[in-house]
Design a protein around this nucleic acid. Structure first.
Lengths: 377, 377
DNA sequence: CGTTAGCACTCGCACGCTTCGAGTGCTAAA
DNA sequence: TTTAGCACTCGAAGCGTGCGAGTGCTAACG
């Protein structure tokens, strides 16, 4: 899209103002907002052209203009000024992050909450685990005659346990033997590798006639499959009601219901390749339910194939620049926390001063001509 | 409150209808709804008296009547017909319950979801654990030179674990000794019993110079304190928007925000003494935020001091009878699942046929004259 | 030829008025 | 004590009007 310089300024001004007020903006307002002094009439002519290019539209004759999805696209790809967080804000986030160092699950969900808070939008957080989670070691702990605990350590420093009550009596010997066999046969084995043949042979070798092997295997399979590809958390739904575009409660409700389904979250747009973030505007969304909302997602790679995805959903009229900056900042902070020391104190990469300027990547899948911009001012 | 028979019928009729329609009900509607045939004028006279008794009110002069909080109170205590669930409904709930047998946390939270679904109201579920959770056994598992897993089994068949990375090297010997000492010194000890003197002596005896004892103790304290008195789950917020009394989004939002705070959930009204359920109507609520909503909560004792609380929050105009029946049914089902077999299949006490008629206890703390009724008609 | 002033026109919105009807209280008769 | 009749109240819905923000078009200007 090659627009004249003035058209760009006008489009940007219209969007900036519309993002602020949620009301159609007229020629007069733009005229007084532009640095160069032009008359409203000139603006009107330009706006008429921007409209015929499909970047602006009028809700009705006699109203001002509002941006179309395409208009936002151009804005995001070419026009948007990179938002810089204030030091206070960065410190606020840092403080929120340092306070919480807990298990992965909680940290991820907390990231979502934090994102929601700082963007004033509903947010979600996904940790996309490497698809090849496997067990690393097994321990079976005899508690009493018919109770034992299975402790399974998985790749990624995750430990899970389960208390098993049996209708029959177990002895330490069987348990020890089974433990050794599990460690020998089941570590490093993916979901699909757990065949009934393997189960049978293990059970026989362990002298297990009580189905212990099956119980453990079932638990293991549950662990390997359970979060299909990671944890999904969605929070901050209520923020939606703060925006006039969701004044219609049913509309908001439909959206929230859609997003409350974990499996849908996993299907949301994801930044691919070298992109750190992805903005999907209104009708660019594949899901019907998102067609008049936008999704902004930041990705952070946590070593291996593990990724952290942190996203928000909101009206197409959102402050993409602020949102994306904040999401990236949090994702980076969380990821560094995870990969770095377990001790508290924010890792250097996540301090305000330490953030390097970085690419805004706002890939759009269909008819994405690969525009990218590194607008640093 | 001693009302004439006809006044009771009228009050009941007004409430039944208002619960249905959410609109002021007039004399004519009542006249045609009552079994005995009376003219609207008579009803009007009676309604005027009910109004002067403070049981009904008029939103404005020329509208019909709506019940006051006191009116609901009388209704709930004396007039309400006990709702009987249909077999289909009971089976629906049974089915939902049998499908889910998981860890306590999840089961409780699932109970909330289910309650919310069957009542079409926001719901919460609390498992109020006996205040005396303690550790029952410890196991320390050496993973590699500077990593080990702590497995703690708590009262109530809960098992928790934590992976500990150390900056230094541990050996199996230290770990074994520490494990034995933990089992000797820390089992059955409540939160407050974990003194630094105990820590010191244990560490010394174990030959622990690396602070392992402290790490484990910290984890233990976290476990013993963490859920101040159990887990709280709140779900189904969105249901609120289905009711005209929460058409004002801000009002709904305030309520939801209030209830999203776990610590507030713990402070909600609780059935005490012999009561199985408690209904708190509008201004009877202590919390300002609940003053124009009602809370219905069912309790189920799960052996020991452990309780399951299952509640919903909604407009004062709610179908108390249906709601209370359903909550009790679910609470009973869940509690039986928990205390009963781990295997699936609903315990006998929770089948439809098996539910004995039981007391409706709708205690009201202030000026509760102890009315109770076992209206089984 | 781009820019701008002027002007007629459009159209949503807020305001005030009217009508309608459900429901009431009161009175007087059954 | 109940009921028919009646005047009255008052919110909700419908309708016309005026207002104002904003537009597109035309014609003049540099």
């Amino acid at each position: 899209m090659n627009l004249g310089e003035r058209k760009k300024e006008i489009l940007r001004a219209v969007i900036d103002r519309y993002v602020d007020t949620a009301e159609p903006v007229g020629s007069k307002a733009i005229a007084s907002a532009l640095p160069r002094s032009v008359s409203p009439a000139t603006i009107r002519n330009e706006m008429a052209e921007l409209e015929s290019l499909g970047l602006l539209e009028q809700p009705h004759t006699s109203a001002g203009r509002i941006p179309t999805a395409l208009g936002y696209r151009i804005y995001v790809n070419e026009l948007m000024r990179r938002h810089r967080m204030s030091i206070e804000e960065a410190e606020d986030i840092n403080r929120a992050l340092t306070r919480r160092v807990a298990e992965l699950d909680r940290l991820i969900s907390y990231a979502g909450k934090l994102a929601s808070r700082v963007t004033a939008l509903p947010a979600y957080a996904l940790s996309v685990a490497p698809p090849d989670v496997t067990a690393m070691r097994f321990d079976l702990i005899l508690v009493d005659a018919n109770t034992f605990i299975v402790v399974v350590m998985l790749t990624g420093d995750t430990v899970k346990n389960k208390l098993v009550h049996l209708p029959t009596v177990v002895n330490q010997e069987t348990l020890t033997r089974l433990g050794a066999l599990l460690n020998a046969n089941f570590t490093g084995v993916p979901d699909a590798g757990i065949t009934s043949a393997l189960l049978d042979s293990t059970a026989r070798a362990a002298g297990d006639t009580q189905g212990l092997t099956a119980v453990v295997a079932e638990f293991l399979i549950e662990l390997l499959q359970a979060p299909p590809h990671g944890d999904a958390h969605f929070t901050g739904e209520l923020n939606l009601f703060g925006y006039p575009e969701y004044r219609d409660v049913n509309k908001a409700q439909r959206l929230i219901e859609y997003l409350s389904d974990e499996s849908e979250l996993l299907r949301l747009p994801t930044p691919k390749g070298g992109d750190l973030a992805k903005i999907t505007i209104g009708p660019e969304n594949l899901a019907e339910e998102l067609r008049d909302s936008s999704v902004v997602v930041a990705r952070y790679d946590m070593g291996g194939d593990a990724q952290l995805l942190l996203g928000v959903v909101g009206p197409t009229r959102m402050d993409y620049s602020k949102v994306i900056t904040r999401l990236e900042y949090i994702a980076r902070g969380i990821a560094t926390l995870l990969s770095g020391e377990q001790t508290s104190g924010l890792p250097p990469g996540a301090t305000h001063a330490g953030i390097p300027p970085h690419t805004i990547n706002t890939g759009q899948d269909k008819d994405d001509k690969g525009q990218r911009s590194d607008d640093s001012g």
